[in-house]
Structures are given as structure tokens and as C-alpha cells.
Amino acid sequence: MAARIQVTFDAASPPTLGRFWAQVLGYVEDAPPPPFSTWDEALDAMGVPVEQRDSAYAVVDPDGAGPRLWFQKVPEEKSGKNRVHLDVTVRPDLPREERPDAVRARASELEGLGARRLYEKEELGSFWVTMQDPEGNEFCVQ
């Protein structure tokens, strides 16, 4: 049986960062567990106080193909460069000569969502833009 992957992010604001990544990847908020129709109902039943309901957030691929992304609240700020990061691929079928313009266009869209562009790089026939999400986590658009 293949292992399922969940990618976990430490965050100052899990719902905010989770919504950013949902927009980037076309993901949706993870559904509450049955039999609950809303997260507030589920969290009420679990006894989670209202002031703690922003301590975690999850988004999922609506097609079920990609990993679940889990965002957990932590008290400390990000302190260094990521050792692992996500790569967001822009249309893998694009010819090599069209890729830089498409990658730059997608990077500009993500800046509109709150990402920050760090630098562009072309190496060994590949082109990518390294960016940071709203909480400073690095990722690449390729």
C-alpha cells in the first residue's frame, strides 16, 4: 500500500496561510468529519474553545491526487531558510522557450495573493522563480 503524504506548515495564522496555498494550488478547505456539516459544529462537539479555533487549518486537492496541507499554529517566527519547499509547476507541457514568460506571469499572479518574489534562475535548461509565501516560506514557480 502506498503511503499518503501530508505536508505540514508551522504558521502564525494557519487559516490565512492555508487559504493562500488553497488559491495557489486550486485546493479547498478540508471537510469537517462526519456527521458534522461545518467545522464550528465539529469543534463545538469536540469542546474546542472559540479562541483556539485558529490553531490549525487544512486544505486538500479536490481531485484527491495531491497531498493534504496541514497548517499548525506555533508561537515562534520562521527563523531560517526552508530545508524542504514546494515547487509549483506552470503547465508542464509548455515548450522550453515559452516557459520563462509563463513562469513570470504566474509569479506575478501569486504576488497579487501576497507572495514575494525573491529571484529568477535559469540552469541546465530549467527556469524558475523563487518566492516566499505570506509567512516567509520559500517555494519555487517553475
Rank of each mutant, 00 (worst) to 15 (best):
M1D: 14
A2D: 09
A2V: 12
I5P: 01
V7Y: 13
V7L: 15
T8C: 13
F9A: 00
D10A: 14
D10S: 08
A11S: 14
A11M: 04
A12M: 03
A12V: 04
L17M: 03
R19S: 07
R19E: 15
F20D: 02
V24D: 00
Y27A: 09
V28N: 12
V28C: 11
V28T: 14
D30F: 10
A31G: 08
A31H: 12
P33G: 14
P34Q: 13
P35H: 14
S37I: 07
W39S: 08
E41W: 08
E41L: 10
E41N: 11
E41I: 07
A42R: 04
A42M: 06
P49N: 09
V50H: 14
E51W: 13
Q52T: 09
R53K: 11
D54I: 03
D54E: 13
Y57C: 11
A58G: 14
V60F: 06
D61E: 12
P62I: 14
G64W: 00
G64E: 02
G64A: 12
L69P: 04
W70A: 10
F71L: 04
Q72I: 13
Q72A: 11
K73M: 09
V74I: 12
V74G: 09
E76R: 13
E77A: 15
G80P: 00
K81V: 13
K81D: 12
K81T: 10
K81I: 08
K81H: 10
N82D: 15
R83K: 02
D87I: 08
D87F: 05
D87N: 05
V88H: 07
R91W: 07
R91K: 08
R91I: 06
D93L: 00
P95K: 06
P95E: 13
R96K: 08
R96F: 01
E98G: 00
E98W: 04
R99P: 02
P100I: 03
D101K: 03
D101Y: 07
D101R: 06
A102R: 05
A102S: 10
V103R: 01
A105M: 04
R106M: 13
A107I: 09
S108D: 10
S108I: 06
E109M: 04
L110P: 05
L110R: 01
G112I: 08
A115T: 03
R116H: 10
Y119F: 15
Y119L: 09
Y119K: 11
E120L: 05
E122A: 15
W128C: 00
V129W: 03
T130K: 02
M131T: 00
M131E: 03
Q132T: 12
Q132N: 02
P134V: 02
P134R: 05
E135H: 12
E138F: 10
F139I: 05
